[in-house]
Design a protein around this nucleic acid. Structure first.
Length: 708
DNA sequence: TTACCGCGA
């Protein structure tokens, strides 16, 4: 422990922090920054006037680092040293050092914007640029000015962007602490391969027959490629002449693998056996596999990005950044000197790879974050001018404002409404928190709570498709089908049924539902109920579904509430086929996702209107999780769209024109808006006409059916 | 007729 590099710099660090409100500490892997910084300042009395907080982007990290520090200080976890993550607060009045996820600290600043409990806040792993850490950095910049005498902020970052963070914090000092990584030799390919699966395969086998023992970690982009490579690698290894080289085990590693399969990488291999671990970027930061000596880096990653104009996410395979490439290489040098095989030329690394990964804040929809910032009620801060380390585009911010206005979270001048204030307290995306409030008015809050909770865990419910699922294609188990109304309703029915049979675990297994996911849903639902309790008008328990469902089989009120919540996520079916056009955003042609439970009518047609939870472009643009709604609920929303004025939402820039640039952009915005509005009016008109035409057509079709 | 990079409240 004494050998940790950071301890040699203790004096210097303490001195610098004493003299400066913000300090950036660049600590490479193995420097001990996550466990030692808090202890250093605890020793130097900083925990006497308040708690020392250390944020982490991930839950497991917050827990495991807290546990380590408690051990090192020889105290009981939860007393002097504790942690706080969602659903689990292990702190006490005695706590002096508190590890917490960045999301939890953000929530805390909602109820206490000055974070007055803390004498020091350490934002750890800031170089990962998680959305929450980025927002916290902006808040910290403001907070150190408000509390100059009794708050110290430390930001830890990786080598490449240390100076940038320093610039952001008014040229604060930057201290560098060396890490404890072993050297990693980088080997480049001469050219980019035509298939990086084949190229990875060749390289892996090459290592296996030529290099001494040590595990091989291979970075691929997704589950499909991983499964392909794992199969090929297993075949190839078996075909090698017996006794010509050591044994080998090939293991896949990615997020949709069930937990018991993921932990297999933590059991060391038998003697004289090499492991090949084929992984997504989960192995870049989240999971650390011991024993890796060789890394094969394809140079690609699958990344989700948001388009604020179309409201659509896309999942694209993109080149990694230099930071990511270095991080991947570093995985080979944790236990001894290693080698990293980059399947691209060094020229590509130098000239083509971005220096840093595009931060999450520039790749996401910001409706939730903007609402959060508005609810903090920082009178000195205008959201559109909020000081971000890397500001999101004005398109993204305007999109967020537009969405928030459509669901009544902000008024026409952009100020947060009472509805918006309540919404911000709920740990949900705005569409769902708005649905809850509307459902409360319609007397179906309990059902809406269930849907919101189910959607919060949605990806971890499905069994993860695998090639073995072909035999499972036999009639799907006895899951409810959403009465044909769509996926939200199905999720509700699944949970209600599970509740009815006393949360029986065996039923989940029989129906390929992930146990952990469903338990998570139960926790989320409980948490949401507690938060909304103070305004709830009815019973919040899961309803006894049987008689209830019979009585209102069409879930009309509930679907109406969903329509209000998803006001910016509407789509209208095309007249002649089952494609849809989106309404709130720039109109796009989209399909109902093939996994959807939405049912067609007797003519094989989907409902005229739906709301969707998410728009995602993979092989084609899809709506994922849809719910049937009625045209009469859509008309008022269209009216509201007609009258929307984005300029006013962003703080009335009609009057305030400061500087040439602002002026021109404002004029441009007005022009675009005018065009959009024309477009919109004709769209609404056309929609009405199409609706009437279709109705007539429907009536005629009765005759067609009779012929059959 | 097709699907799922990774985190978090």
């Amino acid at each position: 422990m004494v050998s940790l590099p950071i301890l040699q710099f203790e004096e210097k660090i303490v001195q610098t922090v004493q003299d400066n409100p913000v300090v950036v500490i660049i600590g490479e892997t193995g420097s001990g920054k996550s466990t030692q910084l808090s202890q250093i300042f605890h020793r130097h009395g900083y925990s006497k006037s308040g708690v020392i907080a250390v944020t982490q982007p991930r839950r497991v990290a917050a827990v495991s680092v807290a546990r380590r520090v408690a051990q090192e200080l020889n105290v009981i976890l939860g007393e002097e040293v504790g942690y706080a993550i969602r659903f689990e607060d292990r702190t006490s009045p005695k706590t002096k050092i508190k590890y917490l996820t960045d999301g939890v600290l953000l929530r805390e600043s909602l109820s206490n914007p000055e974070l007055s409990d803390y004498s020091m806040i350490i934002l750890d792993e800031a170089h990962e640029r998680s959305l929450n850490t980025d927002i916290l950095m902006g808040l910290m910049k403001r907070l150190v000015k408000l509390r100059p005498s009794n708050l110290r902020v430390l930001i830890t970052s990786a080598t490449l962007d240390g100076n940038k963070v320093s610039d952001f914090f008014m040229n604060c000092p930057v201290l560098t602490v060396p890490g404890k990584l072993y050297p990693v030799e980088i080997l480049y390919s001469n050219e980019r391969p035509t298939s990086y699966i084949e190229s990875s395969l060749r390289t892996a086998i090459d290592i296996h027959v030529r290099e001494p023992e040590g595990d091989v970690l291979i970075f691929m982009t997704g589950q499909d490629d991983i499964e392909k490579l794992v199969d090929k690698l297993r075949d190839k290894v078996q075909s090698l002449e017996e006794g010509s080289c050591m044994d080998a085990i090939v293991l896949p590693l990615h997020g949709s693998l069930p937990p018991e399969m993921q932990v297999r990488v933590f059991t060391p291999p038998p003697q004289n056996c090499r492991r090949f671990i084929v992984a997504t970027n989960i192995a870049e930061t989240s999971l650390t596999v011991d024993g890796v000596v060789y890394v094969i880096d394809s140079g690609y990653v699958k990344q989700r990005q948001y388009n604020p104009t179309s409201g659509m996410y896309s999942l694209d395979v993109v080149q990694i950044s230099k930071v990511q490439a270095d991080q991947r290489a570093g995985r080979a040098g944790r236990t001894r000197p290693g080698k990293c095989y980059r399947l691209y030329p060094s020229k590509v690394y130098q000239d083509e790879l971005l220096d840093v990964t595009i931060p999450e804040i520039q790749r996401s929809s910001l409706a939730g974050s903007v609402l959060y910032l508005k609810s903090l009620d920082l009178s000195d801060i205008d959201i559109l001018k909020f000081d971000f380390l890397d500001p999101p585009s004005s398109d993204t911010l305007e999109d967020a404002l537009k969405q928030l206005h459509l669901i009544d979270a902000i008024d026409t001048s952009g100020s947060i409404t009472n509805v918006g204030k309540i919404m911000a307290e709920l740990p949900l995306e705005p569409a769902l928190s708005r649905t809850l409030l509307e459902a409360n008015e319609y007397g179906c809050l309990s059902q809406a709570l269930t849907i919101a909770a189910m959607l919060s865990a949605e990806t971890s419910l499905l069994p993860g498709r695998s090639k073995h699922s072909e035999k499972k294609r036999k009639p799907p188990p006895d899951l409810p089908d959403g009465s044909g109304l769509g996926d939200h309703i199905q999720l509700l029915q699944i949970y209600e049924y599970w509740h009815q049979i006393d949360y029986h675990i065996g039923w989940l297994k029989d129906n390929d539902l992930q146990v952990r996911g469903m338990l998570f849903v139960r926790d989320v639902r409980k948490q949401l109920s507690q938060i909304i309790q103070k305004i709830a008008k009815g019973n919040l328990d899961v309803q006894e579904a049987e008689s209830e469902r019979e009585r209102r089989r069409d879930y009309k009120n509930l679907r109406k509430a969903l329509c209000a919540g998803y006001a910016s996520q509407l789509a209208e079916r095309m007249t002649l086929h089952n494609g849809y056009r989106t309404i709130g955003f720039k109109s796009q042609l989209v399909q109902v996702h093939p996994s959807s439970m939405l049912r067609t009518d007797d003519d094989g047609m989907f409902p005229d209107f739906v709301v969707y939870h998410e728009l995602i472009s993979t092989s084609r643009p899809y709506m994922r999780n849809v719910c049937a709604i009625e045209v009469s609920w859509v008309i008022p929303i269209m009216k509201k769209l007609e009258n929307l004025n984005v300029n006013r939402l962003s703080g009335g820039s009609d009057q305030v024109i400061d500087g040439e640039q602002r002026k021109s952009s404002s004029l441009l915005q007005q022009k675009n808006l005018a065009i959009e509005q024309d477009d919109r009016e004709s769209k609404i008109q056309a929609a009405r006409e199409r609706f009437l035409a279709r109705k007539a057509e429907r009536e005629q079709s009765l005759g067609r059916k009779a012929k059959k």
